[in-house]
Simulated assay, not measured.
Amino acid sequence: MSTDAFLARFGAPGASQPDPVAAAQTAMRNALPRRFYEEAAVLERDGLFHVALDGKTARTPARNPLAVTSRPAAEALAAEWQAQLEKIDPARMPLTRLVNSALDGVADQQKAVRAEIVRYAGSDALCYRAAEPDTLAERQGAIWNPIIAGVEAAIEACFVLAEGVMFAAQPAGTLEAVAARIAAIPAPLALAGAHNVMTLTGSTILMLALADGQLDPDAVWSAAHLDEDYQIAIWGQDEDAAERRVIRRQEFDAAALLLLQG
């Protein structure tokens, strides 16, 4: 579940937004507003970095200032706005959409968002392994086991692994340790990024590995798509699936930036 979809489920001020792929598709179908500004820049005000359109702070759909605590994140936001052409296309602004969700929704739903991340840890994708073929199972072990070990060392708890699709409950102490780590993620921006990284990878473990600097974004993305890439190597990739993956990667990159810089 994406952060936008999460907000739609649990409620947020103003209109809820669809998941990233649906948002992009909807934006492409709808009439787009004309670009009304010449320059998008970053201005530092009151300890925050504002996205300024011709010197005036941009606003979220709920009319909150489009302002963040990190200059790199603000510069990336401003770059999205500056890159717009004659019309403003939200499909080409994944970071802006995520920051809007963070400021307009996650800020008021922190407890529920954190709980959702912990819930994912209870059925984390990295804990479910293929029984066959041996080459896939071996690849999962080679790539995923060190990642899990690193996260286990960081939270001082152990995950239970399972074969196939049979559910394997995680120890209560492990989920408590995960919850304690999630509680330390700043809200709303880094928390929104954490939620979307988790959603797009199917893994709280991978999100924690990224947050703690164990892996960089490229390594996280690769680990999350290990099974998919194995199948692509055998059968090839569908064109539509490839396009959807490109969109997901853009959303992932925005979420990773917000997690690490928010």
Rank of each mutant, 00 (worst) to 15 (best):
V113A: 15
M93F: 00
C127K: 07
A83K: 10
A102R: 07
A91Y: 00
L98N: 08
E156A: 15
S101Y: 00
E138I: 07
Q84S: 11
E163G: 13
V160H: 12
I147L: 09
S123G: 09
Q82I: 02
G150L: 08
A149F: 01
Q82P: 11
V151K: 07
I88W: 01
D134G: 14
Q84V: 08
D124G: 09
A137Q: 11
N145P: 00
I155H: 05
A107W: 01
A121I: 04
L98S: 07
V151R: 06
K87P: 00
A142W: 01
T96Y: 05
W144R: 14
D108K: 13
A142P: 05
D89W: 00
E163S: 12
I155M: 11
G122H: 03
R114E: 00
I147D: 05
L136F: 06
K111R: 15
A153N: 10
A154G: 06
A157K: 02
A142C: 06
A149P: 03
Y128A: 10
A153P: 02
A149S: 12
K111I: 05
E132W: 04
S123Y: 05
A131K: 13
Y128H: 09
P94K: 08
G122S: 07
A121T: 01
E156P: 01
V106D: 00
G164I: 04
Q109W: 03
G150E: 05
T96V: 13
L103M: 06
G122P: 06
R119T: 08
L161Q: 13
L85A: 15
I117G: 02
Q109V: 03
A125R: 15
T96Q: 13
V99G: 05
S123K: 12
E132L: 13
Q82N: 11
M93T: 05
D108C: 06
I155A: 12
A153Q: 14
R139W: 04
V151Q: 08
A137N: 10
R119G: 03
A79P: 05
Q110M: 11
L126F: 07
A137E: 06
G105T: 03
G164Y: 03
L136K: 11
M93Q: 14
A149K: 12
D134I: 02
V113R: 05
V99P: 10
V106Y: 02
K87E: 09
T96R: 15
I117F: 04
T135D: 15
A121P: 04
D134N: 09
A112R: 15
L103D: 02
A131F: 02
L103H: 04
F159C: 11
Q84M: 15
I143D: 11
F159S: 07
Q110V: 15
E116G: 13
A83Y: 00
D108T: 09
V113C: 14
Q109I: 01
L136T: 04
V160C: 12
D89E: 12
R97S: 14
S123D: 07
T96L: 10
D134T: 10
E86H: 09
E116Q: 14
C127N: 04
A157C: 11
I88F: 04
G141F: 02
Q109T: 00
A91L: 02
V160P: 02
